[in-house]
Write a protein that binds this DNA or RNA. Structure first.
Length: 804
DNA sequence: CAGTGAGCGAGCTTCCGCTTGACTT
């Protein structure tokens, strides 16, 4: 558009991708622009809210929004009509209001339009029915904004004072951490109860084919003795089919994706973290492949419903189609958008990288399945009598009569049920038939505590509690990890014994077997600091930490939106007592370290305790007054809450001096990357098979010599003119190193034959992102006080990217 | 994928919710 041109209609939406689409629908009289979300916010400091004057918020246009606002302002001046078309929810209404204020538009007359779906009909209809800004809804947003700022910026400094610096607290994040902390404690306090599951395997002859029928006792047996008694009773018994019941069953598809369910399913089926899912979804959205990805609605537009029908009937036939309209379960949903769906159902796949293709495939299948017919099943329940006892065995089978939506998609599950067998088809059986027992087992099984959260299952829980919004789920999960409250990691399981009783050929055998239990992959664990902060906040600010706090204030926000409550009054009623507690806590509460006394050191008789120190969790021998007290850091995976006296004392056994070799001392210890030997200021990692507590001098020398040998063979080639270019042998074969940066060699390259020019070409063509260059001494020092895990994972690069 | 193995001290940190940006001629 040339300078000075008159614009007939200026429409302002939130997202630029949306602006592009809408512009196509509206024709040449309309220019559609985007505000890129909120254009104003509270400034960073303490003076953002004038508490004494009715909690008056001071708004500023942040630096990164100045250009957008300037452009919109200019265009608004040139426009005949301005239409504010931000989302129809609390935040969207506030965006329109801020725009009106900042662009000098008349609040009382400027046209406000809304649509819940980006379709031509919806937009035309919106244009035909403008309203004005709803100031009550805006006030509800102001109350939300002010409350969050007051809570966050008054609680966080108390943590700096009473726990340590750089911590944070807030309405959403602190509750998210509490969920993780409490789940971990439930797991630690859990006492597994065991019982015995009885399964009988029968040999069946299915027209000459040998098959096995598995039947089970419906209720497990409580003790080993009773299980054995049961098997004893079955010696020489006959087993008769007493009843066969067939009954139809059906499965129905799930609703189309919202942000939360997309994150869950991408986690279960593709193994993506919630941020990863959102980044990929954003790309799909920007490319026009899917509708908006931050939504809490399960609704599909009429256009989408029709397109799904066409696609299903074309690809699978009319019998597979069923119109379905889903209702939202979550009361906190604001439904400003459609569900997440493919923009064009006829695109069964898209161009893009692997992640984009897989996520699109998931979205396509989920959406299409949601408009498909039920799957029809036939369930068969076979009851078997035992001649020697009144108890019954039951076998169940399932046959799929009509696939329906299962042709396309089956939702994943969070439940891990290793004991549950997939019910399949049963062999032909008849009532009165006598079956021959192959064997009967009684297997000891254990009850299990609630599962640890994954990123996605935590999002699910937060959504159930009405805490957080689609746009904040992923950032919240990142925040609690960045602050070091929560770590996402894998944990190895432990070996557990269980009893296995078997009746075969009328003989009973009892065997003790072992299984691995409790192994975790990408699960969220609380850190010690997460525990300490949660306990502190819960003790002094139970209101904020209450799982219902958000739901309660949301009710009040709704009242404000309906015009039945004045927002300043609502905030005042919350803030006055809250602030009093803040002041009181700040003055009187003790510093907290989460200290736990473990007992006495058997050698010195001194007290052994664990607590959070300046650099993280530590163990200490000797009281505060003790001048010769000793310290040792806890290891990764150890926790103040669960560590035992024995394990804490172990920490003081390292470093151990192993002896002298080549006139230098050999010392063994455990570092960030596991056990190592240090000798002549060189480090040698201990192989997994060696134990740092028992390894001896002879073995240490061996390890040193093996490493020297490897190092001697490491160098393949160097070049006189460029000493910084080296071809080296690594654990995975030859690689190229130039000035400390590693490059992969193309497959099949003979490393020793490469010339310097060829090496430089390989380096120049290598587009894989390289790690930031090695820390300088200074940078390494700076990174030191960061939380243990975070320091190991994220080098100092974080700050630089943020500033930009 | 490749290597790695911290620790003296001042001033700063922080919320939740919208949305994607990107030095020049």
């Amino acid at each position: 558009m040339a300078k000075g041109d008159l614009i007939k209609n200026l429409v302002i939406v939130e997202s630029p991708a949306k602006a592009k689409t809408i512009e196509k629908f509206l024709g040449s009289d309309f220019t559609v622009k985007s505000s890129y979300g909120h254009i104003r916010d509270l400034p960073k400091g303490d003076s953002a809210i004038d508490i004494k004057h009715g909690y008056q918020p001071i708004y500023i246009v942040p630096d990164d929004k100045k250009a957008v606002v300037a452009e919109l302002k200019k265009m608004a001046k040139q426009a005949e009509h301005v239409w504010l078309a931000s989302d129809e929810d609390r935040e969207g209404e506030a965006i329109s209001w801020h725009l009106a204020e900042e662009l000098n538009l008349d609040i009382l007359t400027t046209k406000r339009i809304v649509f819940h779906e980006i379709t031509k009909e919806a937009i035309k209809k919106a244009i035909a029915n403008p309203r004005i800004i709803n100031k009550d809804l805006v006030d509800a947003q102001q109350a939300r904004r002010v409350l969050d700022r007051l809570v966050g910026f008054e609680l966080s400094p108390i943590l700096w004072k009473k726990v340590k610096g750089n911590l944070s607290a807030g309405r959403v994040q602190s509750v998210a951490v509490r969920l993780i902390v409490e789940r971990e404690r439930e797991i630690n306090d859990f006492n597994a109860v065991s019982s015995y599951k009885i399964s009988a395997l029968f040999d069946i002859d299915d027209n000459g084919k040998k098959k096995i029928l598995k039947a089970e006792l419906v209720k497990n047996i409580d003790t080993e003795k009773n299980a054995e008694d049961f098997l004893k009773r079955c010696v020489n018994a006959t087993y008769t089919i007493e009843n066969i019941e067939n009954k139809p069953a059906k499965k129905s598809p799930s609703a189309p994706f919202t942000t939360s369910t997309l994150q869950q399913e991408a986690s279960r089926k593709l193994g993506y973290g919630v941020s990863q899912t959102m980044i990929i979804a954003q790309k799909l959205y920007e490319a026009g492949h899917i509708t908006y990805m931050r939504t809490d609605s399960v609704n599909l537009s009429e256009t989408a419903l029709l397109a799904a029908k066409v696609e299903i009937e074309k690809s699978y036939g009319p019998s597979f189609y069923q119109l379905r309209k889903f209702a939202n379960k979550s009361a906190s949903a604001q439904e400003a958008h459609e569900a997440i769906r493919p923009t064009y159902f006829e695109n069964t796949s898209i161009n893009g990288d692997n992640g984009e293709k897989r996520l699109y495939d998931l979205i396509w299948k989920r959406t299409v399945a949601s408009q498909m017919a039920d799957a029809q099943l036939e369930k068969t329940i076979v009851t078997l009598g035992i001649s020697t006892t009144t108890e019954k065995l039951v076998a169940t089978g399932e046959v799929l009569k009509f696939e329906g939506f299962l042709k396309v998609y089956l939702e994943g599950s969070d439940e891990e049920n290793p004991d549950e067998d997939q019910a399949g088809m049963l062999p032909p059986l008849s009532v009165g038939e006598i079956l021959s027992l192959n064997e009967m087992d009684a297997m000891q099984r254990f009850s299990r505590p609630g599962a640890r959260y994954t990123e996605a299952s935590l999002v699910k829980k937060l959504e159930e509690l009405g805490i957080g919004r689609p746009s904040t789920y992923a950032p919240t999960i990142s925040t609690v990890q960045r602050r070091g409250y929560v770590v996402k990691e894998d944990r190895e399981g432990r070996v557990r014994k269980f009893q296995f009783l078997k009746l075969k050929d009328n003989q009973i055998t009892i065997e003790t077997k072992t299984e691995n239990t409790g192994a975790e992959k990408s699960k969220l664990f609380p850190s010690d600091i997460g525990n300490v902060v949660t306990d502190f906040l819960y003790k002094h600010f139970d209101q904020i930490m209450d799982y219902n706090f958000t739901a309660l204030v949301e009710k009040e926000f709704d009242e404000i939106a309906e015009g039945n409550l004045e927002w300043r009054k609502m905030i005042d009623e919350f803030y006055v007592p809250f602030h009093k507690t803040v002041e009181n806590t700040s003055e009187t509460a003790d510093r907290v370290t989460g200290e736990r006394i473990l007992g006495k050191d058997p050698v010195s008789g001194k007290t052994v305790a664990v607590r959070v120190g300046r650099y993280g969790p530590l163990a200490q021998i000797g009281d505060e007054e003790d001048e010769k007290k000793q310290f040792a850091s806890l290891r990764t995976g150890q926790s103040i809450e669960t560590i035992t006296l024995e394990l804490a004392l172990e920490l003081f056994k390292l470093p151990r001096v192993l002896g002298i070799y080549e006139e230098k001392e050999m010392k063994v210890s455990i570092g960030r990357f596991g056990p190592y030997i240090v000798h002549n200021s060189k480090f040698y990692s201990l192989p997994k098979t060696d134990d740092p507590y028992t390894v001896d001098a002879d073995r240490a020398i061996e390890i040193i010599l093996v490493k020297r040998e490897a190092d001697a063979n490491k160098l393949i080639k160097t070049f006189e003119e460029r000493p910084d270019v080296q071809l080296l042998n690594g654990r995975w074969g030859a690689y190229l190193n130039i000035d400390g940066v590693n490059y992969k060699l193309p497959k099949g390259t003979e490393a020793a034959a490469l010339s310097l020019d060829e090496c430089l070409t390989i380096a120049a063509n290598d587009t894989t992102p390289k790690k930031p260059s090695r820390f300088t001494k200074k940078a390494a020092k700076k990174a030191a006080p960061a939380p243990r895990k975070a320091a190991a994972r994220k080098p100092a690069a974080k700050k630089a990217t943020k500033k930009k």
